[in-house]
Amino acid sequence: MSPTSPPAAPADAATGTPTARLRLLHAALRLFAEHGYAKTSIRAIAQAAQANVAAVSYYFGDKAALYAALFSEPFGDMPSLVADFTRDGLDLREAMQRYFRGVLAPLQHGEIARQFMRLHIREMLEPTGQWEKELEQDVRQPHDAMVRLLGRHLGVAGPDDDLHRLVLAITGLAFQIWCQQEVLAAMEPQLLATPEAVDAWTGRLTEYALAMVAAEQALRAPAAAPR
């Protein structure tokens, strides 16, 4: 998953109307999420986007390239987020804030973000080969970056199982929100209803993450000498 920024293809500056490329991305996202890669045709995407079939070739090349674009373009890319939260000079709190802000910001797009999550779930259930690419770039790379960041903070000489557990627990805070969008919409819709509501998660998850790091630090501290 690569949720880090607003949609890459903007609306036309003069009219405010979504460009043909953006309409194709949104239509493809919805149809691929609903029906899967194999059962979604280029013609259906073009029709839903109110675009010519040739527009897919013009903007993306083919169906496979359009599908691959959905895993990076709609919400930016994870390498950019890694560079942001691992920037030199950041203290741990600022690094965590940058991480959670970047991961959660796309939730402000509501239904598009929910479709994005459905697309990833469908790709895992009906793999096309895109999942392997996602695993390396959008899962492994940020995980390793967070391991290095927290390892330095904790003074750990090298990554061990407990450090990996800590990182998975912290990053899982954000991805649980992503995975529970449908549940939140049904039970507590106000928690994701506005940009401000989404932003509120950043502050809370940052505090939760710092508490986890402090707990891990305490667990690693040498046992107090007996009196």
Rank of each mutant, 00 (worst) to 15 (best):
K39D: 15
R23Y: 12
I42F: 03
G89Q: 13
L163P: 02
Y59K: 00
P222Y: 03
A211K: 07
A55G: 07
A185W: 02
V147L: 12
C179I: 08
L168G: 05
A95W: 00
D12Y: 10
A33I: 05
A223T: 09
A49E: 08
G110R: 08
A197S: 15
A65Y: 12
W178D: 07
Q130F: 08
K133S: 05
A174R: 04
A185S: 09
A211C: 04
L66K: 10
A65N: 12
R101E: 07
P18F: 09
A224N: 05
A65M: 14
E132F: 14
G172A: 02
A8V: 14
A64N: 11
A157R: 12
E132N: 13
A65E: 15
D161E: 15
V82L: 04
G110L: 03
A105L: 15
A214I: 04
R220I: 01
G89N: 12
P7F: 08
L119A: 06
E123P: 01
Y59F: 10
L219K: 13
M96V: 02
G155S: 08
R43H: 09
A197R: 05
E216M: 09
A68L: 15
P6G: 11
E134M: 14
Q115V: 01
E111Q: 15
R21A: 12
E134T: 08
T206W: 00
H35M: 06
Q50W: 11
R30E: 15
E132S: 14
Q181K: 01
T19P: 05
S80D: 13
A49K: 10
R152Q: 13
T206S: 02
R148W: 08
Q47M: 04
E123V: 00
Q97W: 08
L25W: 11
E94F: 12
I177H: 07
T202G: 03
A65K: 15
A8C: 09
I45R: 01
A20Y: 04
P226D: 14
D62Q: 04
S80W: 07
A28F: 02
R148G: 11
M187Q: 13
A11L: 04
D62E: 05
M1T: 09
F75K: 01
P18L: 07
G155D: 09
F60C: 00
G89C: 12
E132D: 15
R43I: 15
W201G: 07
L125F: 04
M117S: 00
Y208W: 10
P18M: 06
T202H: 09
A145M: 05
L154K: 00
S72I: 10
L81C: 11
Y58F: 14
G129A: 09
K39C: 02
A209P: 00
G76Y: 05
L81D: 07
P127R: 11
A9G: 01
L150A: 05
A211L: 11
K133G: 08
L90Q: 10
I112M: 15
Q108M: 10
A185H: 05
H164F: 07
V53D: 13
L168Y: 06
D77G: 11
L166Q: 00
S2E: 15
P18Q: 03
R118A: 10
A105Y: 11
P195A: 09
A105E: 04
S72N: 11
A174M: 04
P142W: 04
M78Q: 06
L25T: 14
A197D: 06
L31G: 06
G203W: 07
A9C: 11
R152Y: 01
Q181Y: 01
G129K: 08
G89D: 12
Y208R: 10
S57I: 03
L104H: 02
T4E: 09
D160Q: 06
L192F: 03
R165V: 06
F75W: 06
